[in-house]
């Protein structure tokens, strides 16, 4: 379990992935590469992502739960995949807005 707060940064413990919490509060069973995530900068990365939890994260993409209560922005990419309570998170639909400024 890890504490979520909008604006806070979390790191994977088994790959380079770092995320910023866009949406979501409280204690959540959030994993990356099959291992619980931790507040950024608190844990040395060791080991490798578990099998079946290694499809990778992409920088700049947003990942969310289907009920839209949790949304994470990947600020550093890695090899693990993100999951909440065992459910793998998908990339939120990319927006295709024209540049306005």
């Amino acid at each position: 379990m890890v504490e979520l707060k909008p604006g806070s940064k979390l790191q994977s413990t088994v790959c380079a992935t770092e995320v910023m919490v866009v949406k979501g509060v409280g204690e959540v069973d959030l994993t990356c590469g099959g291992s619980p995530m931790a507040p950024a900068g608190t844990v040395e990365i060791s080991g490798t992502p578990a099998d079946g939890a290694a499809s990778g994260t992409q920088i700049g993409k947003r990942y969310g739960t289907t009920d839209e209560t949790i949304e994470l922005l990947v600020i550093k990419a890695g090899e693990g995949s993100l999951a909440v309570a065992g459910e793998t998170l998908d990339v939120a639909q990319a927006k295709s807005l024209p540049a306005s400024d």
């Binding site: 700049g60 947003r62 990319a94 927006k95 295709s96 807005l97 540049a99």
Partner: peptide, 8 residues
């Protein structure tokens, strides 16, 4: 920015 711009 996150709502209106695609990263890279």
């Amino acid at each position: 920015i996150l709502g209106s711009v695609e990263f890279m």
